[in-house]
Design a protein around this nucleic acid. Structure first.
Lengths: 256, 256
DNA sequence: CAGTGGTCTAGACCACGTG
DNA sequence: ACGTGGTCTAGACCACTGC
């Protein structure tokens, strides 16, 4: 079977080694690559095997592998670099950060100047959080509250929920000792790669506590962003509720 | 030159008929297709010539045309339909609307129930609007104000600015007589296809006038969305400032 | 049935990065 | 010089649409 002439192979399916569904060959290859990414065969930042090697491994042409990789690159799971290879996307890069941090200074230039941890504890997941994280009701969750400042000005108040079963060893101490983007930390410390997120945005009036922490008047309009982040395979791994001060900052978006 | 054997053609450039820069052949083809779209050679909703015909016309292989079309389809300028052909994207479709209307009911189901025109006049473009529309300061602009309702509830207050030179014949009357999405009307009536938009989002407290029109308390938090929409060639064609009531609706976004 | 886009292959050559 | 991804071609066949 696997030695049949290539030109009149007739049906496409069942060439690739393992499982995978029907559909185009390159989709099956894409599925296999996704499995490898999910399993951690190749770590974030590392190069995956070359197109020719993958083609040999899967017994398909380079063009077919190429199309599979093209799609994964378009989804920002892989990163192609001509002459060097194809790499697993990582949050340990400036570029990637701005895909997930959409709040921008009105005058263009800024950077996070500080992150203050307000709290970090393991609690039984509330019903709404459990539903979003696809947990069973009695499961535990890690709840982090923090305050981000831009140019020393408190700007983002985050309330973050994570499945405790996955984020073992996450404590206030280990968290406080880490500097840099949370998602980069999740990646290297817990093997969780955030790949995609959905956000729901509203405007709300600041309550007493938020107003105090963000140093605005109670009742001031704040941007509320509820985010659910997903790893490979669309598995939700984080729920984040943020309150943004949008006096000198705005949430930028592009509609294509 | 144009009859040289294809296999050792050596350099890529200068094969396609007219101008276009260097770079890959398929990028040049893409440029030519964009010109045709911009010129209106093919109208929104119409089919463009088949891949084979375009390949013959440009003296390249079908694969090269294919790659050019792939990119245009990825940018939502073209729409491929297997077995039928490739079509110019149009706002006269349900799908496309939701690319630009990101406000969604919390319970998923809703539709615009009404659009009330509050004003429509030609005025000298204010400096900030002129800058965004890339007009010279003395140029005229059309200013439309309208109120959109969802399920009979006033929800969006829009302040829209258009370059008057392009939107000739746009009056309160012609505007009022049209039902349906504005962008669909712009397309068929003024030959302006909106292809892309950038948005800046903030939370603001409702002023007296907005509060009255949107039937909320003054000071209530509203979502403010400032949008600049572009046609082919990244030419800005609309500035829109919207105030959204986000009590039972939210702005949805996906981060990839 | 003919025509369209969709998939797959094989092979040549280019452009880039590194040793 | 070599290996990587990037471009281009040519040709076969599949899948869908509509006459």
């Amino acid at each position: 079977m696997s030695d049949a002439p290539l030109t009149d192979r007739g049906q496409v399916a069942e060439r690739a080694a393992s499982s995978a569904a029907f559909s185009p060959l390159y989709q099956q290859i894409k599925g296999l690559l996704l499995q490898s990414l999910d399993r951690g065969d190749w770590k974030p930042g590392e190069a995956i095997p070359s197109e020719l090697e993958l083609a040999a491994r899967f017994q398909v042409s380079q063009g077919t592998v190429r199309k599979a990789i093209d799609e994964l690159a378009a989804e920002n799971l892989l990163l192609r670099r001509q002459g060097k290879g194809t790499f697993v996307a990582t949050h340990h890069e400036a570029k990637v950060r701005f895909r997930f941090l959409r709040l921008t200074s009105d005058d263009g230039k800024q950077a996070v100047s500080g992150s203050q941890i307000l709290g970090c504890q393991r609690v039984k997941a509330p019903a709404d959080i459990a539903a979003l994280l696809e947990l069973r009701s009695p499961d535990m969750a890690v709840n982090i509250r923090r305050l981000l400042s831009f140019d020393q000005v408190p700007t983002i108040l985050d309330d973050i929920w994570l499945p405790a079963a996955v984020f073992r060893g996450l404590t206030a101490e280990t968290l406080a000792s880490y500097k840099g983007p949370l998602y980069a930390w999740f990646e290297s410390e817990f093997g969780v790669s955030m790949v995609r997120a959905d956000e729901k945005i509203r405007a709300v009036n600041a309550g007493a506590e938020a107003a105090q922490l963000l140093q605005v008047e109670p009742g001031n309009a704040l941007l509320q962003v509820e985010r659910v982040s997903y790893t490979y395979g669309d598995r939700p791994m984080e729920v984040r509720r943020g309150l943004y001060v949008t006096e000198r900052f705005h949430y930028r978006n592009s509609l294509n």
